[in-house]
Design a protein around this nucleic acid. Structure first.
Lengths: 187, 187
DNA sequence: AAATCTATATACAGACCTGTATATATATAC
DNA sequence: GTATATATATACAGGTCTGTATATAGATTT
């Protein structure tokens, strides 16, 4: 990928998260990225396409990072599930944390017909499925059910942290997750 | 309150939820409400003031409804806590459900200095405090901790339902809530 | 050296946005 | 019947937005 294109993606991602998607104009994006609108519209046909690529990139980066962390730190499936929230807490409390892309995007584009909303919804589903995979490997009966519950805790905590930095919500989400996981492992 | 003013509030609330706040112009609001901009700006000095009043109204309506439901159906504090998610599920799965105002608003106005964001954050805190009150009455040790966990489940499930209607997320949130509540009551 | 590719600079069309100004209608109160 | 309060109708100023058109600069290739 072109250097300029990835620069635009990084800058747009940051601005979307800190100022909101609809409140961020392409003029602002190119100004911060140090380029011009002509270049932006060379790489992205429309602003919507830029939004979609920003979301894809963010989701892919997050999933890769999380997957790497889990695989390089533990091998036992049940441990992966337990460690999941440790890494998520690390991510959420890091100074670079700007929120979860698909959560904000779905709020700004509430219409279910909208492509941005649809992608957000799909990414949320994929994340849930990833957790469900971990639960399955750990031989949990209702893997989908536990995955949904854990993702609710996750999304709720991210939401809380987006609302108020340093809320400490993830600490309690972790405790709740442990109770739910232990319960599911026992049965 | 004037009939027109409350009509504007109702219409604005619906449009904000279904199309997004920033994507909804005052022209659209007055057209749907069957009035004119002059009248809107008589009752609300700016659009931001309208947004704030819509949020306040929505939060008050929800809290009143929830409180009435709880008080008219059960008296025992521990039961109230258990029934909480039953009523919330009823609310979320009702056809009129349009999402939780403060969740969407905080996403559209991510800047913590913004008055709309601040009000959203405050409403989220108030709701958590309300649950904490129920937990305290039920003699739960770490009432604030449990309240935070339950609110994470709540906000996560609302988020999930906003993303995809009929997700069934609240059903699993309820199960998780029961486990957490029972655990807290036992200790 | 000429051609081509990439990026810049700048201006602008057309749409939409908030908020206001002006003029008019309608209904109630005195 | 006149005054007052409330709502309508309409137009517009000034700003921002997306997306495009036009002209130019620098760099690489042939």
């Amino acid at each position: 990928m072109s250097l300029l294109k990835s620069k635009i993606l990084v800058v747009a991602s940051d601005l979307f998260q800190t100022r909101g998607i609809n409140s961020t104009g392409v003029d602002t994006i190119v100004a911060v990225a140090g380029t011009t609108k002509m270049t932006l519209y060379k790489y992205f046909r429309t602003k919507e396409e830029l939004i979609l690529e920003v979301l894809k990139q963010g989701h892919q980066d997050f999933q890769s990072w999380l997957n790497d962390q889990l695989n390089s730190n533990t091998k036992k499936p049940s441990e992966k599930l337990q460690k999941l929230f440790d890494f998520i807490e690390e991510w959420v409390t890091s100074p670079n944390f700007r929120g979860m892309g698909f959560i904000k995007a779905s709020a700004e584009f509430p219409n279910e017909e909208n492509p941005v909303h649809q992608l957000s919804s799909e990414q949320s589903r994929q994340f849930r499925q990833y957790i469900s995979g971990l639960a399955s490997e750990a031989n949990i009966q209702d893997a989908d059910g536990l995955a949904l519950q854990l993702s609710l805790l996750f999304e709720g905590a991210v939401q809380a942290e987006q609302m108020k930095r340093g809320s400490g919500a993830m600490k309690y989400a972790k405790k709740a997750a442990k109770i739910l996981i232990d319960g599911a492992l026992a049965s």
